[in-house]
Design a protein around this nucleic acid. Structure first.
Lengths: 71, 71
DNA sequence: TCGAAGTAGGGTAATTAGGGGC
DNA sequence: TCTGTCCTAATTACCCTACTTC
């Protein structure tokens, strides 16, 4: 998986689509669940996630949308 | 470790590998956090950084990529 | 030289991870 | 099995002002 860090810190994939990272709370609002549930989804592999150097979880907006659309 | 700062903000090592320097905002967007948080990571030693003569922080793209892939 | 944007500090409130129990 | 809630410690976001960069 190749990605490019853009001039503004954006995250660009091979397809040229600019992506951004969402917090657990933001993802929780999308699905109407508790942020803790989103965290559990990460541990069980139900949703892809990225960890900050300190260990907190972030989620790619494109993947969240894909799950919402019947991933 | 000897290195040369290029005209476009590039960073060239002895191995000839060009490494771009990223601003706190760019790194912040890449990890989905506040730029202030990236600055904090520098002080706590979670991410290697380079300081400009005036004291501002910059980060090597290769280091950021390494951290994103699990440090 | 001017204005807009970004950054470094500090201080405080909010969020998160993790475990445990329901 | 899955989820929401309670707890603590750690981490982060947002507020401000002054300085730097473009």
């Amino acid at each position: 998986m190749t990605s490019i860090i853009g001039p503004n810190g954006t995250f660009t994939t091979e397809t040229g689509v600019t992506d951004r990272l969402l917090t657990p709370t933001e993802v929780a609002r999308f699905f109407g669940v508790d942020p803790k549930t989103v965290t559990r989804w990460s541990r069980t592999g139900r949703i892809p996630s990225v960890r900050t150097p300190s260990g907190q979880l972030r989620y790619r907006e494109s993947e969240v949308r894909a799950l919402l659309n019947g991933g």
